[in-house]
Computed example of a mutant assay.
Amino acid sequence: MKNLKSVIFGTGIAVAILSMSCSDKVQKTTASGLNPTAFDTVINEKPIKLYTLKNAGNMEVCITNFGGRVVSIVVPDKNGTPTDVVLGYDNIAQYADSVNSPSDFGAAIGRYANRIKNGQITIDGKTTQLPTNNFGHCLHGGPSGWQYQVYDAKQLNDSTLELTMNSKDGDNNFPGNVTAVVTYTVKGDNSLDIKYTATTDKKTVVNMTNHSYFNLNGDPTKDIKNCLLYVNADNYTPTDTTYMTTGETAKVENTPMDFRKPTAIGKDVDNFGFAQIKGANGFDHNWCLNTYKDGKGDDTQVAASLYSPLTGIKLEVYTNEPGIQVYTGNFLNGTVKGKKGIAYDKQAGCCLETQKYPDSPNKTQWPSPILAPGQQYNSHCVFKFSVE
């Protein structure tokens, strides 16, 4: 018989943890070592599960519908050894506890990924005040953004999971009833294909992304400084001391922001002689992708890549979005313990977040995040893995 324990965490999320008694059958662990029963629970009266997607090439992706979070990605390394390449937790309790283990690990971020200045948006002359949760700005949809909400899940087949978010008008003060769908598909070429769509009944802003922290070394005790980063971008968007974009774009040429050739992250990630890196304590910036031209993104071209010489694993990123936020885990400090009890220290992972530019609602010179009734938001991101 299952025991039911109710827990209330800091965000006000009600969680019913279902703990298995000794007499219950223990479910087989995933290739990444996860026990699916550690994710079986109910949050805000909605069931939570761990979903496993696979292909014939020994790739496995595990996702929970709590926050639409990618919990693990297993791909073969250069020796054919199955290797988990993302950070995360091995139980739902840690994901749901935003006080003791706050994170965006692997989340399908919404409504608006990244920052909105002073938490204010103006649509058709009407200004709306959003909650502020990061240096006076609204970050990742606010303190109870979609990463801390429950998506309705439907596993379509062994390789595809469809997640739906029905976000009500006024959710974190954002206008409009929005229905957003995230479709994760593991494909035969060892890629994780992510499609986002959304509709609204009132003009609003939408900007979704995936917030996986990649460590292609396959060992989070080894930081990502050795990994080679490539970003197909001639420009980036500088930020002020509150991590907010200034509204200008700047050339990467002759700066530490130039990754137009694969370059070790560790070469300049701690180069505090460069004001942008000092201000962000590493890389935490949006690059303006060359793959986006004339209002359209080409998701057949490589937007960015990451490579570990240690494992030989290479990740290529494709997207139709205009920007990509590269974040090198600068706020990780060893206090958070993830899968297998490993403490995540600074630069234990690198995020590659395809997106609209930060604070686009307030900077009309940039691609617009406005979604109106009758329109459909469409965003596409592919994380493709291979071995070199």
Rank of each mutant, 00 (worst) to 15 (best):
A14M: 06
L18C: 05
M20F: 06
C22Q: 15
C22I: 09
D24G: 07
V26Q: 09
T29W: 04
S32H: 05
S32L: 11
E45D: 15
P47W: 04
P47F: 07
I48A: 01
Y51L: 04
V61E: 06
V61M: 04
C62Q: 12
V70I: 15
V70Y: 02
V71F: 06
I73D: 00
T81R: 12
P82N: 04
D84T: 03
D84M: 02
V85M: 05
G88Q: 10
D97N: 14
S103Y: 00
G106C: 04
N118R: 11
G119Q: 08
T122A: 07
G125A: 12
T127V: 06
T128H: 01
P131A: 07
H137I: 06
H140I: 13
P143I: 10
Q149I: 00
K154R: 09
S159R: 03
K168F: 11
N172C: 13
V182R: 01
T183N: 04
Y184M: 11
V186G: 06
G188K: 14
D189Y: 06
K195Y: 01
T197F: 13
T200A: 09
D201R: 09
K202R: 11
T204W: 07
N207M: 11
M208I: 12
N210T: 08
G218Q: 05
G218I: 06
T221V: 06
D223I: 00
C227R: 03
Y236A: 08
Y236K: 03
T237M: 15
P238N: 10
P238L: 01
T242M: 13
M244D: 09
T246V: 15
T246F: 13
T246Y: 13
G247A: 10
A250Q: 13
V252I: 11
E253R: 08
T255W: 07
D258N: 15
T263N: 05
I265L: 15
F272C: 03
A280Q: 13
A280I: 01
F283V: 02
F283Q: 07
N290Y: 10
T291P: 07
K296A: 14
T311F: 00
I313M: 01
K314F: 00
V317H: 02
Y318W: 05
P322V: 04
G323H: 00
Q325G: 12
G329C: 02
L332S: 02
G338D: 11
K339C: 04
K339R: 11
G341A: 11
I342A: 07
K346Q: 14
Q347R: 15
A348V: 06
L352H: 02
E353V: 08
P361G: 10
K363I: 14
T364W: 13
P367I: 07
P367Q: 11
I370K: 13
A372K: 15
Q376W: 00
Y377N: 04
F383W: 06
F385K: 12
S386W: 08
